[in-house]
Design a protein around this nucleic acid. Structure first.
Length: 672
RNA sequence: GGCGGCGUAGCUCAGUUGGCCAGAGCAGCGGAAUCAUAAUCCGCGUGUCAGGGGUUCAAUUCCCUUCGCCGCCA
């Protein structure tokens, strides 16, 4: 019950700062951003004093590496991704009160002030350590940027932190023949001084503090227990790097803060920036310095240690700002039953998605299956079904059938009555109960449940509409029909509000139809109805049957049944007409480097085909070759160029080898 | 190797102070209706709750163990 008091308190919500060296993917969305946005939107409707901040995390070694790889400066890298990330969030309907970035002077000042104060209190001390240094790159090397021979299994290419081959962990000094991953030079061991945060001194305070959070999610509590058991160790919080927040100590002029140290302080900087934008520069203190503030960090489980241990310890050391009140950490999102892997490109990217599809169906598909309790699977098949069966058929169709009915039979006017019959009252009761029920779920961070609960209402509407059969009562019993329609509109009116946190774009479109203006969460319990309804609109477009396959192909997925190879009959195979053909001429398709346009001789018949082999073959080398083509493939236009057939080739990534014949034959031979 | 997690209907997931005949959505099957984006509504599940053992009057839920998957740490 304590959580119900949220509405009367000040709430500061954060989502993990996304690292600015890549795009946002579905896993991050489901873990840290969508649930937070739903939580915040709901609280705004409720009139809570809520501020939602986030920003790009722009420091650290990986960004300097990305910069090097792409031939850019770190600044150019973060500028690029900061904008991409910010815009993707905006298009997805995530509404931060402020989206900042850690490379701003404001953040540097804030972090330095934080460091200085904690240092002055004696929680930060220097130590001398040994580290690998690359004389060529003139920098100390992070463990994973050193390669060599694994001391355990003798495999080549082992990284300084772990050997891929045997899976064992390695100390970088133990690598045989170590090399700098960037330039290949042999690094040397050098001494360097680093400053350590006295995390070990906070073991007991942290343990006590966590004991006061019995209702936190078990995944968070278990993670921490594991760390307590092992014992907390002091952590190095400085790095020999030029890209980052300079350490504010005379004797550490050439060092920057470890990115994990300054990143969480970004929550504060972002709040400060927000306050300035509000024209009340001190307003941030109302949140960070008021012990009644509920500080809520939405994160993925990979961030638990930092948010539940290191960051609170930092805050204890700093001793002026509030500690996290809630850390609703989510688990991971798998894609089509396989783990997310950005390196293998087994990933789905938000900007890519938004360039082709609307935000709300994805918000829904993710919300209704959030990884709240365990890792969860995202499948396009599921997305397709949710969009068609639930959004379009149940929600969209309910709104549509009501609107169309009113326009056909009532000229769009909504009967000004309140139902008092049993069936009507049952619906009104359900509407009245909904905001409270859903609120309890959201406040308890059961957002998945909440999303499903909302969708219960349009289903109820359909049932009610069917049972009342207004298409009949319209002639039999006009008053009954009036009651039914008024009740249905009331339900839609409630939905505009209740749907908003989950499907903001859809909610707005319903709102345009109703024209009732801004209403609060509480208003949804007893929703107003307009005198007249706007034109019916189709809220969701149905996806056809090719959708899933198309998305799977984009994902670079192998066919679903690669494991058990699909068996086809001889008859099925015989449908494919394979023939030999001689290439007579070939040229690149203009504006592409991959497509080659060929004129081929199929034994008396000339044809034009297009194939994506430009990276592996030069057009002039193709002329005269005898190749094998599928002769009865439906013609297709590729980049506007007609292709009447498909050539066969062995494909291994970018390695392509044409299928040819072993002995000269005439063109147009059947291949069987 | 140490610690921890997960394994529930064809699919995706709920289900902790141990006890109502173990649930929902989707898919599937049957039926009704026809206002609506061929959209809706109603009815239909004997699931070894991964396998085995134990505690208990009673276990999906607690303990031990085996198998499979995963994470953290060294």
């Amino acid at each position: 019950m304590a959580r119900l008091s949220f509405a009367t308190l000040r709430i500061l919500v954060t989502s993990a700062l996304p690292y600015a060296n890549g795009d946002i993917h579905f896993g991050q969305v489901a873990g840290a951003y969508l649930p937070a946005d739903i939580f915040v939107k709901y609280h705004r409707l409720r009139g809570s004093d809520v501020v939602y901040v986030c920003g790009s995390d722009e420091h650290g070694v990986p960004i300097t590496m990305t910069a090097q790889k792409q031939g850019l400066t770190p600044r150019e890298v973060v500028d690029k991704y900061h904008v991409r990330i910010r815009e993707a969030f905006k298009d997805f309907g995530i509404e931060f009160d402020n989206y900042s970035r850690t490379s701003l002077p404001l953040h540097h000042e804030t972090s330095q002030g934080f460091f200085r104060r904690v240092y002055d209190k004696g929680y930060i001390k220097p130590r001398t350590t040994r580290q690998l240094y690359c004389p060529c790159c003139k920098m100390f090397l992070a463990d994973r940027y050193v390669e060599g021979i694994c001391p355990n299994c003798r495999a080549e290419g082992a990284r300084g932190d772990q050997c891929e081959a045997c899976g064992r962990w390695i100390e970088p000094f133990d690598l045989i023949e170590p090399r700098c991953k960037t330039c290949g030079e042999t690094p040397e061991i050098r001494e360097t001084k680093h400053w350590f945060f006295a995390l070990s001194r906070f073991q007991e305070p942290l343990r006590k503090w966590l004991a006061s959070k019995p209702d936190w999610k078990p995944n968070v509590r278990r993670f921490c227990e594991g760390w307590f058991k092992a014992g907390l160790r002091d952590r190095s919080i400085t790095r020999d790097l030029s890209w980052g927040v300079p350490v504010p100590l005379e004797e550490a002029k050439d060092k920057v803060m470890y990115v994990w140290f300054d990143a969480p302080i970004g929550y504060v900087s972002s709040t400060k920036e927000w306050a300035r934008q509000q024209g009340k520069p001190d307003r941030w203190r109302d949140y960070w310095e008021d012990s009644s503030t509920r500080l809520v960090h939405f994160i993925g489980k990979d961030n638990i240690v930092f948010h539940a241990m290191v960051w609170p310890a930092m805050l204890m050391a700093f001793d002026e700002w509030v500690l996290p009140t809630e850390i609703p950490a989510n688990e991971f999102l798998n894609i089509e039953s396989r783990k997310f892997s950005t390196s293998r490109n087994w990933a789905l990217w938000l900007p890519e998605y938004l360039s082709r599809f609307p935000a709300d169906p994805l918000r829904y598909a993710l919300a209704v299956n959030l990884p709240e309790n365990r890792d969860v699977d995202f499948a396009w098949r599921d997305y397709h079904a949710r969009n068609n069966n639930e959004l379009a058929d149940i929600l969209g169709n309910f709104v549509n059938r009501v609107a169309v009915f009113l326009h056909k039979n009532y000229s769009g006017r909504v009967p000004d009555v309140t139902a008092d019959d049993d069936a009507g009252l049952e619906v009104l009761k359900a509407i009245e109960a909904a905001p409270g029920r859903i609120a309890t779920m959201i406040d308890g961070f059961r957002i998945k449940d909440a999303a499903r609960e909302v969708m219960t209402l349009p289903a109820l509407g359909n049932r009610y509409f069917d049972k009342q059969s207004p298409w009949r009562s319209h002639t039999d019993d006009r008053q009954a029909c009036d009651r039914t329609m008024a009740t249905c509109v009331r339900l839609i009116s409630a939905l505009e509000v209740l749907l908003y946190p989950f499907l903001p774009h859809t909610s707005r479109r319903i709102g345009q139809m109703l024209g009732l203006g801004v209403r609060s969460w509480a208003d949804a319990a007893n929703p107003a109805i307009p005198g007249e309804l706007g034109e019916p609109t189709i809220l969701f477009t149905k996806l056809d049957d090719t959708f899933v396959d198309a998305q799977m192909a984009r994902l670079g997925a192998e066919p679903e049944d690669t494991k058990e190879a699909q068996v086809i009959s001889l008859d099925e195979f015989k449908k494919v007409e394979l023939k030999t053909a001689r290439v007579e001429s070939a040229e690149k398709v203009e504006g592409t480097d991959k497509l080659v346009k060929m004129s081929i001789d199929l034994g008396g018949e000339k044809r034009q085909i297009v194939a994506g082999i430009g990276k592996a073959y030069r057009p002039e080398d193709l002329v005269g070759k005898t190749i094998v083509v599928v002769a009865n493939l439906a013609p297709a236009k590729i980049r506007g160029v007609e292709s009447r057939g498909m050539l066969l080739a062995a494909v291994d990534g970018d390695e392509i080898a044409l299928v040819t014949v072993d002995r000269e034959t005439k063109a147009g031979c059947e291949v069987s």
